[in-house]
């Protein structure tokens, strides 16, 4: 898909809710054909999951801390690929209007589940080819991935889930 030139990009902070069709048009990212594109994407102010990824308000996980050397990086409209599926395709991509959302992968998490911290002043979106898109309300968020118990003979062993 051709990316729209910057002059034609309508900001994602447009007052009316975005539809999946509009978001895929603006980001150049695509989703599978069977997903309904005309529905507007809900913007969630709370815990939400997209497949093996979960978005949690940072205040819920006080023990996950930013590494002292971490710096916040801007999430441009091209987006940031947070995680790819087991078969090599199907990434979870975070997108937002330039200057409205920053992220850092440099975190300390004793459980080893945190992918990144995100802070946004306008809705940011998670897009995935199979799961579609979901909106993240302004705030500061911890994005984690999923684990399952590993070999039960290894107590405490867990492995990360591959979607």
């Amino acid at each position: 898909m051709k990316r729209p030139s910057s002059s034609t990009v309508m900001p994602m902070t447009h007052p009316t809710p975005l539809t999946l069709a509009e978001l895929t048009e603006r980001t150049g990212l695509d989703v599978l054909a069977h997903l309904e594109r005309s529905l507007s994407i809900p913007v969630i102010d709370g815990i939400q999951a997209q497949g093996d990824l979960i978005v949690v308000p940072r205040s819920e996980l006080p023990r996950v801390t930013r590494s002292p050397l971490a710096h916040w990086q801007d999430v441009g409209a091209d987006g940031v690929e947070l995680l790819r599926g087991a078969n090599g395709g199907n990434p979870h991509t975070l997108v937002a209007d330039r200057g409205t959302c920053a992220w850092t992968p440099y975190v300390r998490d004793a459980q080893g589940l945190t992918l990144c911290l995100v802070t946004n002043s306008a809705p940011a979106y998670l897009i995935h080819p199979e799961h579609g898109a979901t909106g993240i309300a302004p705030g500061t968020w911890t994005i984690r991935r999923q684990r399952e118990r590993g070999d039960p003979r290894t107590p405490g062993g867990a492995r990360l889930v591959q979607d």
């Binding site: 996980l61 998490d109 991935r145 684990r147």
Partner: peptide, 12 residues
């Protein structure tokens, strides 16, 4: 996801 039951119950 490394969350408690009450936390996960808030999943929207």
């Amino acid at each position: 996801y490394g969350l408690t039951g009450p936390q996960y119950a808030q999943l929207q």
